[in-house]
Design a protein around this nucleic acid. Sequence first.
RNA 1: GGCGAAUUAGCUCAGCGGUUAGAGCAGCGGAAUCAUAAUCCGUUGGUCCGGGGUUCAAAUCCCUGAUUCGCCA
Length: 712
Amino acid sequence: MSRRLLVTSALPYANGSIHFGHLVEYIQTDIWVRFQKMSGHEVHYVCADDTHGTAIMLRAEKEGITPEQLIDRVWREHKRDFDGFLVGFDNYHSTHSDETRALSEGIYRALKGRGLIDIRSVEQFYDPVKSMFLPDRFIKGECPKCGAKDQYGDSCEVCGATYTPTDLKNPYSVVSGAAPVRKASDHYFFRLSADECKRFLEDWTQQGDHLQDEARNKIREWFDQGLNDWDISRDAPYFGFEIPDAPGKYFYVWLDAPIGYLGSFRNLAARGGVDFDAFTKPGGDTEMVHFIGKDILYFHALFWPAMLEYAGYRTPTKVFAHGFLTVNGEKMSKSRGTFITAGSYLDLGLDPEWLRYYYAAKLGPTMEDIDLSLDDFVARVNSDLVGKFVNIASRAAGFIHKRFGGKLFSSRFTERFESELPGLREAAGVIAAHYDAREFGKALREVMALADVVNQFVDKHQPWELAKHNDTEQLHYVCSIVLNAFRLLTIYLKPVLPAVAARAEAFLNVEPLTWADAQTLLPAGHAIRPYEHLMTRVDQKQIAALVEANRENLAPTAATHSPQRHAQHQENAVNEATKPETATAAATAPAPAAPAPAPAEAATPTISIDDFMKVDLRVARVARAEHVEGAEKLVKLTLDLGTETRQVFAGIKAHYEPSKIEGRLVVMVANLAPRKMRFGESQGMVLAASADGSGVFLLDVDSGAAPGMRVK
RNA sequence: GGCGAAUUAGCUCAGCGGUUAGAGCAGCGGAAUCAUAAUCCGUUGGUCCGGGGUUCAAAUCCCUGAUUCGCCA
């Protein structure tokens, strides 16, 4: 039975680049969508940039451009990144669109017509210089408890106290620096606490199968705390849609953001061929599925269904929330270089399908966080994709071309195929069920186990031996089996690896593969094309370069809270550009560290432990030390780091006789950028103490230490 | 602070009441040489975070402690 699906991923905020955290979601959704399409279902996958709010407005102002110019530029960047990672949206739109405006106004009017909109006066902080109301995250001040400076209005990053913005001492506006004043204004509220609304939401979230179990439990907690009405208006100046019949009042960005799903879909439908109403009106057999991060569950499981329900639209069929991404077991960090942007990965020429595969291998249907371990990434991609999968085609293709003119075995062998590689075709069912249930990790484990079986088959029949003994028919048969097996594996991996699959289809000389094709084999005597390698290996060095490219050498701003969270937290996430320059280094340092923000002018400002850890100090053995001809000060050292050797030029000629230091242990900076010198490249630096005119003293290491040990 | 999740082999993870706890990678020992070193066979390795309890039976359920992470609109 064919399904009809409208699928969305959360809208990225038009105020920053797409990074690895975002990609978890887009890749997850894209794989699911591609699988559904391959299975013959009708799927419309839409998304858009989320473009409104104070943060966008201020950022544009700071850059001296209009918000429209800003969001237009960011849209293009985002689109490029998504295309680069093979995220196949059927439409990528913007919330700043006629469609979204019309839908937002319509939904608002419907809610108002049902008596679900209230107007109440709210007192908020107001920036008298900028003449604007300030979202909480745009107010800073001193912590009421410990007195730490430059703390946000909700919690103190030094002592951990939580409070409200009104508790701050000496508050100031992040925008203008002025002291904010309290000012009242009328706000529009969506009456979520209305009885009918509460009943509907309790029912919608707890009954039926719209949410994951964990999500349901989470929402139960929220219900227990009581539902509050939702403030959906913001005062001018604001970049967004003005509320009908309410001059100077704008829809809060979070109102029109999810409506942007429908806006994007309507924009797609307007181009023809898609029935907008069939997917958006109640009743019918279509499905509406949202993939989101767990941080925005509240909006998608409460506000959104309520808005839809009371505005006469259908409610979501499913809301699938996923967890966050950590890198090497830790939060993504700009100072560690693990806050990796999509653009940097693509610019360095890394293969997007490596990441798609790695994420898929780690993804399941739960809200659990997933970890990107960079070492594991390299090992897994190389071993699974190149070693196991791609290699299968490569092993058989040569014989088929050299011996058989590129044509497969000339008679049918479907039954024999079954007995040679039992289960390879039947697995299609299990794997499909895994994909459909978003059990991508399980699906891929299954596929890789099959790839192992195929490699075992090759080893068992040893085609190279058959070739040697001119057992032509058997050789032809075995290689044909292997290529058919490869074709099946390609089908199974195609949702994850669309580009490799396309290359494999070209090599196999077949039409684009669908899931149903797993039921058949290549026709007897089928001609294939010459084999060209389908995927290269990841080099550890590429990963190192990626991390380096993303490393920011600024003082670590503790303010990069939950960087991987959805950018949709616009009003919460103050854009880097609008932050004042004061670094709050102390917050990330566990130990005593910096007492207060260190003055930037100081010669050696206090650094955090994070800063220190950026320097990779290693014990090294001086394997060789030689004079450098023509150099006045330099000695060429060959340093043994245990796993590798480095060539380093050290300016110690005046103080050390090379032959005397051979064999001793020294401390070196192992991650210093290599530097070309007249005599060669210096790949590091050895540590020595010195003062004016006092000589140079190499650091020694106590016995017992081994080359390669980290110094910290 | 409140609530929740996680903690299993060197690494990344699976197992979630029932034979001696598994996989991939890494390591080690063999084999092989078709394949852009890719493969195959064998093998080492674990007080399943600590402590209590429930049960004929606990990595799995309950309580408690530790650590890590997340959420608090």
